[in-house]
Design a protein around this nucleic acid. Sequence first.
DNA 1: GCCAACGTTGGC
DNA 2: GCCAACGTTGGC
Length: 154
Amino acid sequence: MNYWLMKTEPGVYSIDDLRRDGHTAWEGVRNFQARNFLRDAIKKGDEVLFYHSNAEPSGVAGTGRIKKEGTPDSSALDKKDIHFDSRSTREKPIWFMVDVEFTGKFKNFIPLEALKSKKKLSGMLVTQRGSRLSVQPVTRDHFETVVRMGQGQS
DNA sequence: GCCAACGTTGGC
DNA sequence: GCCAACGTTGGC
């Protein structure tokens, strides 16, 4: 079982949207490192920290779980989609997506500032300057610490 | 809105 | 294969 952090801009798709929908296709990722995680490493049942970026404040808003492993990203094949990529084809897809299901919204939203100041979370990728990767691996320790903070037990 | 940090592209 | 130019991310 692995743990991940996935970024989304709440104005585009928030934890409340995920709660409403139950699950969603995590599509539109156009970065090769993140693509490799989506295609190769993320497995059904893996747990996800749901992170609001470009928000006021930015931070972890809740959790999700991988419902379906990597499949070709259909938005890359759709000419009308903003994420359309002419290099990607049905036979040789470049981009991949996973399906994420809602598992919970934090009682306490955890702002980035709180992640940074928590000693136990030192080294967590998202707290590092210039960390732009939109799909990041998280250690089990860090995942559980953040969840405890979000549930208000720490 | 600014801008630092980073990823990607393309000329050579 | 280098690296400058450009585009994007995302905190502030």
